[in-house]
Design a binder for these strands. Structure first.
Lengths: 149, 149
DNA sequence: TATTGTTATACTCTATAACTATA
DNA sequence: TATAGTTATAGAGTATAACAATA
């Protein structure tokens, strides 16, 4: 039995653990974490480049490169907007949609396994507390929920 | 009031939030997240390169570069081992020690602020549940605890 | 003028493969 | 042979600054 961590250290270490598990799911699907994030965001709906920059917390020029590489791999495509001739909408290709779905499922399973040792009650508490924190922080939904909840 | 997330989505989104807050503390101190992690690990004790690779989950060659850049910035230094002439020990310089300390404090404060909206009881539950998960997962301590608890 | 997006550039981070030196 | 660490190389990711095109 190790000592009880403070909440700050607990959050940091837990987040590194989660990122590590998420990264394993990425490797399994030959995705880098930023690419996986991109696909997961686009699963919800197509986005413009500026919108992606805001959601992913990146500079516009970084999004250009990220989308370039995903497009080169056939996972997303740029579609010209008809309303605004400056703008593009980035959307998943069928291959990207499939990959995004299987990735999301695999990541969810790995994360569930990571907390499988907790009691049912503690898992519910963890989910509830996380929801509270996220709601207060107004975080963009960068990973979809698919719980029965 | 948004819906209650499932535990997998809650963990992923929470971890992105925490990484983002951690990243802000990094920027404030002109550190990249991997550099900050390196300093925080070395705060505990000097380490060999192979040991660092394991703790940070990086290849040895990646650690070489990370330590190179930190050393160039005067934050760490390589000290030849006397027991094993192949080996080096990486340790914090005084400047690195100071920076590591103020970074850790700043990050802790930001994280505490992030969960300040929770009840005292929920914060304690979150810390306890995180401890349980981390203990089960055998995670290396990449961010020190300095709570009273 | 403001916004959308790209290009040019530079640096950090990371892995793989091949290497040196020591154990 | 195995281990500790570095070098060479290549690619992803990121930011800043400057730019083009459209609103």
């Amino acid at each position: 039995m190790s000592e009880q961590l403070g909440v700050a250290a607990g959050l940091v270490r837990l987040s590194f653990l989660v990122q590590s598990v998420y990264g394993e799911a990425c490797e399994e699907h030959e995705l880098t974490p930023p690419q996986a994030q991109l696909l997961c965001v686009l699963r919800d709906a197509p986005r413009g480049m500026a919108e992606l920059a805001q959601t992913l917390r990146l500079e516009k020029s970084s999004v250009t490169g990220l989308v370039d590489r995903a497009e080169r791999r056939g996972l997303v495509r740029r579609v010209a907007s008809r309303a605004d001739r400056r703008a593009v909408r980035v959307e998943l290709t069928p291959a990207g949609e499939t990959l995004a779905g299987t990735f999301h499922q695999a990541a969810s399973q790995r994360l569930s396994a990571t907390v499988a040792g907790l009691t049912q009650r503690d898992r519910a508490r963890l989910a509830a507390i996380a929801s509270d924190v996220l709601e207060a922080a107004q975080v963009p939904a960068v990973f979809a929920d698919e719980s029965a909840g």
